[in-house]
Write a protein that binds this DNA or RNA. Sequence first.
DNA 1: CATAGACATTGACAACCGTCGATGTCTGCT
DNA 2: AGCAGACATCGACGGTTGTCAATGTCTATG
Lengths: 114, 114
Amino acid sequence: MTLLQTTVSDACCAPTSSREPLGASEADSLAHTLKAIADPTRLRLVSIIAASTEGEVCVCDLTDPVGLSQPTVSHHLKVLVDAGILSREKRGTWAYYSLVPGGLSSLATQVAGV
Amino acid sequence: MTLLQTTVSDACCAPTSSREPLGASEADSLAHTLKAIADPTRLRLVSIIAASTEGEVCVCDLTDPVGLSQPTVSHHLKVLVDAGILSREKRGTWAYYSLVPGGLSSLATQVAGV
DNA sequence: CATAGACATTGACAACCGTCGATGTCTGCT
DNA sequence: AGCAGACATCGACGGTTGTCAATGTCTATG
C-alpha cells in the first residue's frame, strides 16, 4: 500500500541540505496516519484501550467514557484500524479492539525523525 | 460542551484499567498539536527546515519545493509556529523559520505514551 | 519620497470531517 | 422460528480546513 519511494532528487550539486527531506508520497502516507490520531476522541479511545488491563476493550465499554453515540465511536475505531493503530477481533456478539504492537512507537519514531 | 468527567467511574470493584487514560482536556491539547503536523504540506515544510544545514529557511525558499502559493505557505508556517513546532525570526525583509528545539521529540514522546 | 520586494492578512470557495438518527447484519438465546 | 442485543453502515447536516487571488504592511534601496 505504502510505496517507500526514496528517490534521490538531486544529490549531485546543491549541498543546501544535510539530508534528504520528506518526499511527497512519504509525507502523504505519514500525514494520513497522523490524521488518524490527531483527534481528541480517537486519542482518548486509544488511551482507554492502552490503559486497560486486558489490553482489549469492546465497543460497548467505550461509548460511555467518551460520551458519544455508538455509530460515532464505531466510525472512530474504524479510522484507527485502517491507520494500523488498532486491531479488531470479533468474538461472538462483541468486537474487541486492541493496540497493534509497536504501532504507536513506530509512529512516534517517524515523527521524531521528520 | 466538554464536561471534564475525571470522576472515577467505578474504582471500587472493577480494576479494568492499569493506569489513568487521557482526560478530555489533555486529549484536546495533544490533538491540537498533532493536527498541526498531520498534513503532508506541513510535514514537508518541517522536514525541509530540519534537513537544512543552516537550520533555518526563509519563506521564499519554501514555496518552490512544496509547489504552493506564498500565502498558503505562510498560512501553514503560522499553524506550525502556533503549535510550538517552529519559531519565526524576522531579519530585514526576510522571515526565517527554524525548529523549536525538542519540539518534535516532545511530541513523539507524548504519542508513544498515549 | 517613491518604488520594489518579502511576507502577512483577508475573504471566498470547495472539499473534507465529526456527529447523529435510522437502518442493516450478524450472533446467541428462548 | 422469532426475538433481542452488539456492532457496522448509510445518509445527512453543520463546522472545519486547505487553497488561492487580492490586498495590506513593513523594509531596504534608488
